[in-house]
Design a protein around this nucleic acid. Structure first.
Lengths: 328, 328
DNA sequence: CGCGTTTACGTCGTTCGTAACGATA
DNA sequence: TATCGTTACGAACGACGTAAACGCG
């Protein structure tokens, strides 16, 4: 058993059991992978893959077990390499982040721009994903940091660092009935209008859906979109009142739209950075988090990320300080 | 970076930085290890060891970090191999356990004998250690299971499985003043006599010491020994009243000695099996635990040990069932 | 017939062990 | 001078890539 073999196993599993594709991804030849897998199976004494004819159809139970351990092992080797790169003071590398549209479009641009000024040789990869896909990417292990928001709950797969808190806002055309209000509408007032919001509102665990349900209100979701720009466009087109993140309504505001605070009963959201557990982050990754949430102490951050102190997020002293809200 | 290099690094660290000794332990030659370490240092870009002249004096901070990751990696590879060996139905292998004298002498013999009947080709290594050393062995990673007792606290380094509960007893010569009592002496009654007990009683966290301290009693520890046989010998010699584990006073009892229950205020002890976290146990290891604590459900045991379900020991339903006490 | 896997084979790189050398106590 | 780590060298093993064969849709 070698690290190469384990890397090949992971590559094949992550390439949909296509050895040729996996070979390209690891910069090797297909027969090479084929042979190494065979050799590993011979050494372990059981098959890693189910085969029909010559093609791989699925992982065997044993294969899944080995895959799990292999991921952990490769994660540790990556940590060693990352530590070494930090130690050498290397400033080049890749920062792969997976995040939702709102973050990518409204929050991250200035942060990433600043990061690139500090680390010009870092190539930043921004992988957009729907809310629930984000953590899947993280668990597959090819992502350095996930940026996502929750309303209430703490993400559990990985090391979750609270970055900032934000509220939702209601966006309506200037002619809309709600536009005359000079205050936050109540949930009741909101419920009588058709709404336009994020796709995640469809899901049963959506906080918007639950807020209405808790008060026994019936409401109508006129349409959903992944993307705040689209929501704004359709609000302008008169499809309904938009419910979206405050970060997404930057100033200067379009003259034909009005922004109201969301109902107070609609809970606050928290944006988190989630890092794979046990992975040692590169210096520029810490720099990125630092820029994203300046209130975090850099040494605490590194200490927690390196696993030398137990996380137990969110720790009381920190949590109190996370009051600052980034809005551009 | 290869698995071999990481294995060499661990071997050198665990051999007191003696490369020659480490080479012998991993069945390789000394120049081989020397070269691999050098190569690894070149690849990582920093030194793993501090050197004075040609000899290694200590690990560098970086070396300690790499060593930590290396241990985790090798642990995972060991898990893969163990799983494979189980899958192949292999019945040979090594079971290395570290434990205290009481367990080794009074509890384990019939269990190990039974295990050897079920798995004749397993070689059992019994590593005796003082209470506090036990967990060090475990953390170094060359031990499969530690068997140890605590009074109250739950061992934290590793996966702790409660096996059985036991109480202490008071052992006195037939002529001793306490021998006339037909009941458990109180702590007060015990305090006026010199005592003979385990070496761990010297330490401040000793439950015996704390029990006296809590009641503000002064007491006298006449002598200590690691080993119940010695305690019994010195009790017989008239040095004082023995306070020792009930398992250590087997029947038939020597005619010249009397056994009394310990004071009720002296708390109950729990014997634990502690396994290295994340290590997949061999089938015979599970069999061993099963024989040691028959009340544990075998499937639960394996499920917990394989890490597929979170432990959170002791879980309420189990805990209730751990009432059975093994006394031979 | 295209796609993907397996098998066969030659080359290259790497590792390993033996042996000689050097430093240190 | 004995012990331990480093360097040097030759042999053997193993991994990799190219090319061809095989199954399957």
């Amino acid at each position: 058993m070698t690290l190469t073999q384990l890397r090949y196993l992971i590559a094949i599993a992550d390439s949909g059991l296509n050895i040729t594709l996996a070979a390209a991804r690891v910069h090797a030849t297909q027969p090479g992978l084929s042979k190494q897998i065979k050799q590993m199976e011979a050494e372990l004494g059981f098959l890693l893959f189910e085969r029909r004819g010559r093609s791989l159809t699925s992982l065997t139970p044993g294969g899944q077990r080995v895959l799990m351990h292999a991921r952990r092992i490769l994660e540790e080797t990556a940590s060693i390499r990352a530590y070494a790169a930090n130690e050498r003071g290397e400033t080049s590398g890749a920062l792969v982040m997976v995040t939702t549209h709102t973050q990518a479009r409204y929050v991250l641009p200035p942060v990433i721009a600043g990061l690139k000024r500090a680390f010009p040789y870092v190539s930043v990869h921004l992988q957009p994903a729907a809310d629930r896909e984000v953590l899947e990417y993280l668990n597959r292990g090819d992502v350095d940091v996930a940026i996502l928001s929750t309303a209430g709950s703490v993400p559990r797969d990985g090391m979750a660092i609270p970055l900032y808190r934000w509220r939702r806002v209601v966006l309506v055309p200037a002619m809309h009935a709600l536009a005359r209000l000079d205050r936050a509408p109540s949930l009741q007032e909101l419920a009588i209008h058709p709404l336009v919001s994020y796709e995640s509102s469809i899901q049963p665990e959506s906080s918007l859906r639950q807020a209405f349900a808790r008060q026994g209100l019936s409401w109508q979701l006129a349409m959903t979109a992944q993307d705040a720009d689209l929501i704004r466009t359709y609000v302008r087109a008169g499809l309904g009142a938009g419910v979206l993140a405050e970060m997404a309504v930057g100033l200067p505001l379009d003259a034909d739209l009005r922004v109201l605070p969301a109902p107070p009963t609609l809970c606050e959201c928290v944006t988190w950075a989630v890092l794979p557990r046990t992975r040692v982050p590169r210096d520029y990754t810490v720099e990125f988090l630092q820029r994203l949430a300046p209130q975090l102490d850099r040494r605490d951050l590194r200490r927690v990320l390196e696993g030398t102190s137990e996380p137990a997020w969110p720790p009381p002293p920190w949590w109190a300080e996370i009051s600052q809200t980034i809005t551009i």
